[in-house]
């Protein structure tokens, strides 16, 4: 319990520091929120154009897809809030040898590497995702029960954990190649399919791979279907939580193995 409190305190300090740092560049801070809004608007516009030419896509109506985009936005932006900057920074820590300093801290190293920077700006964009979810639900004319909302929070956390664990494993490649920014860029391509209805993909290698190996077709689809009330069985919920746990365990294994390969860049 005492350790937990210490970690909470340290995280609080890191958050405070990140916010203060961010506020030094106010205009830039606001511009980033606008840019992210623009990209989200782009996704909505894309679907609006598609639905201008069809009534439904693989059984999903227009507002169900808007709901899906909203869920994807929430998960993706929360991933930004807590992890993206830190993970893309790992290769720099290794290249410059700054990781040495962190190793010497009396804290869990993975904790420090993963959550050092807190991106407050993206909280606003995640909020925008929630607004769009509310909008879509109003258009669909239904409101989920308290239990469904609770389930939504759980599956969003599971999705967040999946993104974090997969991306963390990719970032660990930097222990061997030193430069690994391109890899995170590659991960962004995966986000592009996370916001599509899984049913649009025919059963086959592609769908199986992106459901069970890299579960992109689950992370946003399952929360959206939960809220839309189109889940027929609790199977996908259990699968998502189970895969999240498996991904996290795998990433811890990769992390320990990678650390053994670390040879400091400085003297």
């Amino acid at each position: 319990m005492k350790t937990l409190r210490r970690y909470a305190q340290v995280y609080g300090a890191l958050m405070r520091y990140s916010v203060i740092h961010e506020m030094q560049f106010k205009v830039n801070f606001l511009l980033w929120i606008v840019v992210e809004c623009l990209w989200f608007g782009l996704q909505l516009a894309y679907m609006a154009v598609l639905y201008g030419h069809t009534e439904s896509i693989a059984g999903w109506t227009r507002w169900q897809v808007v709901l899906l985009l909203g869920c994807n936005q929430v998960v993706q932006q929360l991933f930004h809030v807590f992890f993206v900057t830190n993970l893309s920074n790992l290769s720099e820590l290794i290249r410059r040898g700054t990781l040495d300093l962190l190793i010497l801290q009396p804290m869990n190293l993975r904790f420090l590497v993963s959550v050092k920077k807190f991106e407050i700006g993206n909280v606003a964009n995640a909020g925008l995702g929630l607004v769009v979810i509310g909008w879509a639900l109003a258009k669909l004319g239904q409101w989920p029960s308290a239990l469904e909302w609770l389930g939504f929070v759980v599956v969003c956390c599971a999705g967040l954990l999946i993104h974090y664990s997969l991306c963390f494993m990719l970032a660990c490649v930097a222990f061997w190649t030193v430069r690994a920014q391109g890899i995170l860029w590659g991960y962004y391509n995966l986000f592009n399919i996370a916001r599509l209805p899984a049913e649009a993909f025919p059963r086959g290698l592609y769908r199986t791979f992106f459901t069970w190996v890299l579960p992109m077709l689950l992370v946003s689809n399952v929360p959206a279907r939960l809220l839309a009330g189109t889940l027929t069985s609790p199977g996908p919920l259990v699968a998502l939580v189970g895969i999240a746990a498996a991904c996290f365990a795998a990433s811890e294994g990769v992390w320990r193995w990678s650390l053994r390969h670390y040879s400091s860049a400085s003297s």
Binding site: L50, H53, T54, E55, S56, I57, A58, N189, L190, N192, I193, L196, P197, E199, A200, F201, P202, Y206
Partner: peptide, 18 residues
């Protein structure tokens, strides 16, 4: 880059198959 491309193509196939 081909992963999202495949996603787009599947999406259009689904639309034409409605």
């Amino acid at each position: 880059g081909l992963i999202p491309l495949a996603g787009t193509l599947y999406l259009w196939r689904a639309i034409y198959g409605e």
